[in-house]
């Protein structure tokens, strides 16, 4: 269950978006987050929506996966919309209902703001659906590598990330095993007052921590005997390669940004 929450988000595929360099995707997402705020009228929002939909279609991700990703924040979007509708007092009244006046500007504002929110979520979800966590890590490492000049251990941080990703399923399995073992000994994790349940958690956490430390130590030994001595002389197996499609997408995004600047009011 937790497995699918953290690593199972990725939907394997071979679409154009899947094959983009993770750096492209990260940079694009980063820029997108800013240019979304350029939109302020029908034209600009229309253009952004089209662009985003095009990305989504190109990714060939089944719509159900996207909807699943959107579900938890749907009420936030609805709430934002209602808040704007009810609190904006500009333009003319569209209708009245039990003394609540709804203005046309309010509806417009509400629609724009929630659309902006929706677009942001769709784009970030698209990134996680089409990029494996390890690709994201590699992309981050490569993008942040200039920071090495200031002695920030970028390589080590990336390695830490990838090892944590690798050990999530292992530790999940172990948690489950320990829980079952403790339940067999009569520990009750799911009922009783909160204080009791907290106490029960120690019966889970203590063995889990002990084993995690042991694993860490053994893993460190295994890495050392395979010649690991930090990042300096290492080559990389997973090399990121910048392809034409990456340049094309970056250019498209630039064009979008320019168009937004021109069309906004």
């Amino acid at each position: 269950m937790m497995n699918s929450m953290i690593i199972g988000k990725y939907v394997p595929g071979d679409s154009l978006i899947h094959r983009l360099d993770p750096r492209t995707k990260l940079i694009m997402m980063f820029i997108y987050v800013f240019i979304v705020f350029l939109a302020n009228n029908g034209w600009t929002y229309g253009l952004l929506t089209c662009f985003t939909c095009a990305l989504f279609v190109l990714s060939r991700i089944p719509i159900t996966f996207m909807l699943k990703g959107l579900k938890p924040i749907l009420w936030v979007i609805v709430f934002t919309f209602l808040l704007h509708v009810l609190l904006t007092k500009e333009g003319h009244v569209v209708f009245q209902w039990f003394g609540i006046e709804v203005y046309d500007k309010g509806i417009q504002q509400g629609a724009f703001i929630s659309l902006r929110f929706l677009l942001l979520i769709v784009v970030t979800t698209l990134l996680t659906l089409t990029t494996t966590p390890i690709e994201v890590t590699d992309g981050m490492e490569s993008l942040l590598s200039p920071l090495k000049k200031w002695n920030i251990p970028v390589h080590e941080l990336a390695l830490m990330m990838s090892i944590s990703l690798r050990f999530i399923p292992t530790l999940m399995e172990e948690t489950e095993k320990i829980m079952k073992a403790q339940m067999a000994r009569g520990v009750d994790f799911s009922s009783g007052p909160l204080s009791e349940r907290m106490k029960a958690m120690t019966a889970l956490l203590v063995p889990l921590f002990i084993s995690a430390f042991k694993r860490a130590e053994e893993l460190a030994v295994a890495m050392e005997v395979r010649g690991y001595r930090g990042g300096n002389y290492r080559t990389k197996w997973r090399e990121l390669t910048w392809k034409r499609a990456d340049t094309v997408f970056m250019l498209l995004l630039t064009l979008l940004a320019i168009a937004l600047c021109l069309l906004r009011s």
Partner: peptide, 15 residues
């Protein structure tokens, strides 16, 4: 160490 089989074999070679 690696996230997949090939990454694990690659780890020592990278080193």
């Amino acid at each position: 160490v690696g996230t997949t089989v090939q990454d694990d074999v690659a780890f020592g070679l990278e080193n």
